[in-house]
């Protein structure tokens, strides 16, 4: 939240005024979340899980979601352990995207609990967002900037300044041969998707929420995606994918979920 500005940069302000500033920022931060008063009041009493917590588990308990008049998700419950992947293969219109958007925090479930590492994500949404990366239908790339400029900006949002291996990330998704001055606009849809995947690998998030990550990708691109996911899982990351064609991932840690009415 806003307090991060001062909390993580003690050099910005002399020690004497830090305290009152911090207080003021904390108040502002509460106002920012005025739409979600509950979370503001809970923030004071939340229990923080230390970074080395062995079990950053995602637990969804009895989730109910309505879209307009439609009762889309009816009491959905599942859990996802670190290092494992869940592939949603539900039919069209049954709420794959809505579930992912709900987990990411764009939609608010009418009922139910989402817990990350034992803490409700509503209680500390920012901490959850730090651990999470979302890739939706839109790639969030700026068409007028080059692939490298897009990656540089994406990293500036999340990763502290320093040497980030941007070019290496592009190489790893098979885009080493594109002209560095070429704007993203002139890349093909599949190449743009690859840039988005490179961004994902740079963010160092523990939980990936991917909506149709393989769309527009050719066979080689799909292999790149599978390799990225494998590496992510091996480093202890978890992922939920909404997809129509199951990706080839290590079966021991990958569950396929065919329909929302099946138990997870």
């Amino acid at each position: 939240m806003v307090s991060a500005l001062l909390g993580h940069n003690p050099r910005l302000v002399p020690a004497r005024v830090t305290c009152s500033f911090k207080q003021a920022w904390a108040d502002v931060a509460k106002l920012v979340d005025a739409a979600d008063l509950k979370s503001a009041s809970r923030r004071g009493v939340r229990v923080r899980v230390p970074p080395s917590a062995p079990n950053l588990r995602l637990e969804v308990h009895k989730l109910h979601l309505w879209r307009g008049d439609r009762h889309l998700l009816r009491g959905l419950s599942f859990a996802l352990d670190p290092g494992s992947t869940l592939q949603l293969l539900w039919p069209n219109g049954t709420g794959k995207t809505s579930l992912l958007r709900c987990l990411a925090g764009f939609l608010h479930a009418e009922e139910g609990q989402i817990r990350w590492g034992g803490v409700s994500v509503r209680a500390d949404r920012d901490a959850f967002h730090w651990d999470m990366a979302y890739l939706g239908h839109d790639t969030a790339l700026k068409a007028d900037l080059t692939a490298l400029e897009n990656l540089r900006f994406a990293c500036a949002l999340r990763v502290p300044r320093g040497e980030v291996p941007l070019q290496a990330a592009l190489d790893s998704v098979g885009l080493s041969k594109i002209d560095p001055r070429q704007p993203v606009r002139s890349l093909s849809a599949g190449q743009q998707r690859r840039v988005a995947l490179a961004r994902l690998s740079l963010w160092d998030a523990k939980l990936w929420l991917l909506d149709e990550p393989a769309s527009n990708l050719d066979a080689a691109g799909q292999a790149v995606l599978e390799a990225l996911l494998k590496a992510h899982m091996e480093s202890g990351g978890a992922a939920i994918l909404a997809t129509h064609h199951a990706l080839a991932l290590p079966q021991a840690h990958c569950r396929l979920w065919q329909s929302p009415s099946d138990p997870a």
Partner: peptide
């Protein structure tokens, strides 16, 4: 909970810089 995060100030600056760059590309 990643160990290191970009500060809000640097993130906001990045947004500012990128939008200015975009404006130069598309005046």
């Amino acid at each position: 909970m990643s160990a290191s995060r970009a500060s809000t100030a640097s993130a906001a600056l990045a947004v500012l810089r990128r939008d200015l760059l975009l404006a130069v590309r598309r005046p």
